[in-house]
Design a protein around this nucleic acid. Structure first.
Length: 433
DNA sequence: GACGGCTAGTAGTTATCTGC
DNA sequence: GCAGATAACTACTAGCCGTC
């Protein structure tokens, strides 16, 4: 007799389902599922399930039938998948911070954010610095679920003690807040992954200035036109135009370095318009879109720099439309790098007396915008000129208009006082006559 | 080998966008 | 309007490379 024949002979007809004795002597169960499929008994881990005795097999089969009757039955592979998922969650819940944070970094590197955009290289690098520099040394293999508000407070208190490199006397540093922001991003993702029920309820403190004290007057950061001229003279001729572009066209550093010959539009009357369309990205070294859509703008080039700009183009910029306005080398096709410009700027700045401490190239923008404000530019005009998207940034220039405001208020006072005095005098005179 | 110019990489700081 | 998320800028360091 063949093995198959023996098996068939061992199979016994049941009221529901089938039992058969396997060559090993153990009993196997088969039964019809609600979906019409014939199932063979399997464990919850989706492994083959057989029984030592026929009674055991029959009892198990009865149990399955009861489950089906109550609507509780699920296909073995689905049960196994559920258990596997539960196991994964269980393992994840005991996951150490170091491992999870590395997974998170990999995730933000490869997957788009919730807006569907891929994060910039610089962003990932920035986050990675916070994770490896502060968070992993702080939490090591602490299970993610154990990082609660109290534990986070310990970390922020510790970080708050680190003096700000830029201003050791500052009450704040630029470390705690960004590190906390990254930590909360990780913990929120952990909550979305089901590793913790919810991220701890920790609010990120408001951003405080590190460079300046609370009573710092923003006006101190503004170079006067004489100092702008001195900076222009101090920078080597080949790149001096950057100073005028920042001060009088209010360009940011990356916008200056990203300018190309085609971005300058000359008009018949000798005037010119500057189109700001790209920037030289300090992180990637290549051209990228502007920081914000508001940064994309067209500006009238002030008369005071027209001749110098024309001369600069003739002397240093290739005739190619895409030639950088500030090339690394005379008539070159490669723009001056952000880092190299940093050195050139630092040398020039150190050679000009009277500038505010650590005066930045970026601060040159304030000079032009402040004068614009003093000349009566509206907030909308200031925003457009500076390429600002946020009105709060532009409001800082309003302080510059206070002198003008005071002057107008004094004039108004004089005029009103004079009118009142004249009216009184005329009134008094009328009574007399 | 010393030195300077330059670039890449990174940390700290701040501006801006986005979603609730 | 606010807080979170993102990205850019400033400052600094290390290392490469050519020149003396």
């Amino acid at each position: 007799m063949s093995t198959t024949a023996q098996s068939n002979a061992a199979a016994k007809r049941e009221a529901w389902g089938r039992l058969r004795k396997l060559p090993s002597g153990r009993w196997q169960v088969r039964y019809p599922g609600p979906d019409g499929t014939t199932y063979t008994a399997r464990t919850d881990q989706d492994k083959p399930l057989t029984f030592l005795t026929k009674t055991d097999a029959r009892t198990w089969l009865a149990g399955v039938q009861t489950k089906m009757a109550r609507g509780l039955w699920e296909p073995p592979e689905e049960i196994a998948a559920k258990l596997e998922a539960e196991l994964a969650v269980e393992q994840a819940q005991s996951l150490g911070f170091e491992e999870y944070s590395k997974r998170w970094l990999e995730m933000i590197r490869t997957e788009p954010n919730r807006s569907g955009k891929k994060r910039a290289v610089g962003t990932v690098r920035s986050y990675q610095g916070k994770v490896t520099g502060y968070l992993i040394p702080e939490f090591r293999n602490t299970p993610v679920r154990e990082i609660d508000a109290a534990r986070i407070k310990v970390m922020t208190d510790r970080l708050d003690q680190i003096p700000a490199p830029l201003n050791p006397n500052s009450k704040f540093n630029g470390i705690t807040r960004p590190v906390l922001i990254v930590l909360m991003m990780i913990l929120r993702q952990a909550a979305r992954d089901g590793i913790i029920p919810a991220a701890p309820n920790v609010s990120v403190p408001r951003q405080e200035s590190v460079r300046h004290d609370a009573d710092h007057d923003a006006g101190e950061d503004v170079a006067n036109p004489i100092q702008v001229e001195a900076l222009y003279e101090a920078v080597p001729d080949q790149w001096a135009m950057a100073v005028l572009l920042a001060a009088w066209c209010q360009l940011r550093r990356g916008e200056c370095l990203g300018l190309q010959r085609r971005d300058i539009e000359w008009h018949d009357d000798g005037s010119a318009t500057l189109h700001v369309r790209r920037q030289l990205n300090a992180n990637t070294g290549g051209y990228t879109d502007l920081k914000s859509e508001a940064g994309r703008r067209s500006l009238s080039i002030p008369k005071l720099m027209i001749d110098r700009l024309q001369q600069h183009l003739d002397d240093y910029v290739s005739s190619d439309a895409k030639a950088p306005v500030l090339p690394a080398d005379r008539w070159g096709s490669i723009p001056l790098s952000n880092t190299r410009w940093g050195y050139i700027w630092a040398d020039a700045r150190d050679g000009v007396a009277g500038l505010p401490h650590r005066f930045r190239f970026h601060d040159l923008r304030h000079t032009g915008l402040t004068i614009f404000a003093q000349e009566g530019a509206t907030l909308a005009e200031l925003m457009r000129r500076g390429g600002h998207a946020d009105i709060h940034i532009v409001l800082r220039y309003q302080h510059a208009t206070m002198n003008r405001d005071r002057e107008l208020a004094d004039r108004m006072s004089d005029r009103v006082s004079t009118s009142i005095a004249r009216a009184k005098k005329e009134g008094d005179g009328g009574e007399e006559t």
